[in-house]
């Protein structure tokens, strides 16, 4: 196969895998609702696409999925496209530089870090667009911090950094367990995936 053909093949693979990430990010809401789970599962697709195709594809999957979720689920998603981009970049960096996908403990630690990053990136949006409210139980923690004299931005950032790590650790662990469980036949279709030694 010529180099240009291989490149075309890879380009089309990226084009075909990004919609999978979009569908996983948006559609897993149906699984969460069906199983009545208290988590979001809105970044599993971004994490999987980043691990399989790299950070550019991860950002595309994350951003596009939130634009689509804004139409199909809730228009408030559109404000958090930056968080998805940050998740893709973070996952790419920790997977390539720190070899996070090699053990479950590394995944847990990286998941906590991912939650803190997501909480910090979301905080300015929550303050500017929603006045500090997120419409979840997290608001009680924010209110508690505000009543103790903290500034709204700091209160939102702290409440995010406290509540997001649980959700994001679960999502990163879920994505990791899915990657590990994928049959070799499927994994072989993604020769440029990151963390190959770990998955």
């Amino acid at each position: 196969m010529a180099a240009s053909d291989r490149r075309t093949q890879t380009d089309y693979l990226v084009l075909a895998v990004i919609p999978v990430g979009i569908a996983l990010n948006v559609g897993l809401g149906a699984v969460v609702i069906a199983l009545r789970l208290p988590i979001y599962l809105d970044a599993v697709g971004t994490i999987l696409v980043t691990a399989l195709m790299g950070w550019r594809a991860g950002i595309a999957a994350g951003v596009m999925s939130f634009l689509l979720a804004a139409v199909l689920v809730s228009p408030t998603y559109v404000y958090f496209v930056g968080t998805q981009a940050a998740i893709a970049v973070y996952v790419y960096v920790v997977c390539t530089r720190l070899g996070v996908l090699k053990s479950v403990w590394r995944v847990v630690v990286a998941g906590v870090g991912l939650g803190i990053v997501a909480g910090l990136v979301s905080a300015p949006v929550i303050v500017l667009v929603f006045g500090g409210a997120s419409g979840s139980g997290r608001d009680l923690l924010t209110a508690l911090l505000v009543s103790s004299g903290q500034q709204v931005l700091k209160a939102v950032a702290l409440s995010g950094a406290a509540s997001e790590p649980i959700d994001k650790t679960l999502q990163l662990m879920l994505a990791w367990s899915l990657l590990r469980s994928l049959p070799q036949r499927v994994l072989d279709r993604f020769p440029n995936r990151i963390g190959r030694s770990g998955v």
């Binding site: 380009d11 089309y12 693979l13 084009l15 075909a16 895998v17 879920l174 469980s181 499927v186 279709r189």
Partner: peptide, 27 residues
């Protein structure tokens, strides 16, 4: 929560496999 990976695995395998086949076809 414990069921989640078992529910998601067949979905993910199917979708990634289908995506790889689809990319060949698209190319």
């Amino acid at each position: 929560l414990r069921q989640l990976p078992f529910v998601l695995l067949p979905l993910t395998v199917y979708m990634l496999d289908a995506a790889a086949n689809r990319s060949d076809l698209w190319a």
